Simulated scan of single mutants.
Amino acid sequence: MRVLRRCPGLAEPLRDGRLSLSTAAALGPVLTEGNWEELVGRAAYKTKVETEQLVGSLQPRPAPREGPTT
């Protein structure tokens, strides 16, 4: 699992059940060596959907382009 290779500290939360494989994978795009502990705490025991919502709230979205107004 790529996420586990990047953040080996995830092994324990996976082992003790705080995270499932699907929630760990969902966290992958926003996990760094600097924030993984905080994110594991925020995502612990959450469903995949709840974790995806957390990830969505952390990822910046580009501002919509202004189009012509009629």
Rank of each mutant, 00 (worst) to 15 (best):
M1Q: 10
R2Y: 00
V3L: 00
V3N: 02
L4I: 12
L4V: 15
L4W: 01
L4C: 02
L4Y: 04
R5N: 11
C7N: 13
C7H: 04
C7K: 07
C7R: 14
C7E: 08
P8Y: 06
P8L: 11
G9Y: 10
G9W: 07
L10N: 09
A11H: 11
A11L: 14
E12H: 12
P13L: 11
P13M: 08
P13G: 02
P13Q: 02
L14F: 07
L14M: 08
R15N: 06
R18S: 13
R18G: 05
L19V: 02
S20C: 04
S20R: 08
L21A: 15
L21W: 14
L21I: 01
S22L: 01
S22K: 04
S22M: 00
A24L: 06
A24T: 14
A24N: 05
A25W: 03
A25E: 03
A26C: 04
L27H: 08
L27D: 00
L27K: 13
G28T: 12
G28S: 15
P29H: 04
P29N: 01
V30N: 06
L31N: 09
L31T: 15
T32V: 12
T32Y: 01
T32G: 00
E33W: 01
E33Q: 13
E33A: 11
G34L: 14
W36M: 01
W36C: 02
W36N: 01
E38C: 04
E38I: 10
E38A: 11
L39E: 03
L39S: 03
L39I: 10
V40M: 10
V40Q: 12
G41V: 07
R42Q: 15
R42I: 02
A43I: 06
A44F: 03
A44M: 04
K46M: 13
K46F: 01
T47P: 04
T47I: 03
T47A: 07
T47F: 03
K48D: 05
E50A: 15
E50C: 07
E50M: 09
E50G: 08
T51N: 07
T51W: 05
E52Q: 15
E52L: 15
E52D: 09
E52R: 15
Q53F: 06
Q53M: 10
Q53P: 00
L54V: 07
V55N: 09
V55R: 13
V55G: 08
G56Y: 10
G56E: 12
L58A: 01
L58Y: 14
L58V: 07
Q59R: 08
Q59W: 11
Q59A: 04
P60R: 07
P60H: 07
R61H: 13
R61C: 07
A63L: 13
A63N: 03
A63D: 04
P64C: 06
P64Q: 12
R65V: 04
R65Y: 05
R65W: 02
R65T: 02
E66M: 09
T69D: 05
T69Q: 14
T69W: 14
T69M: 12
T70I: 06
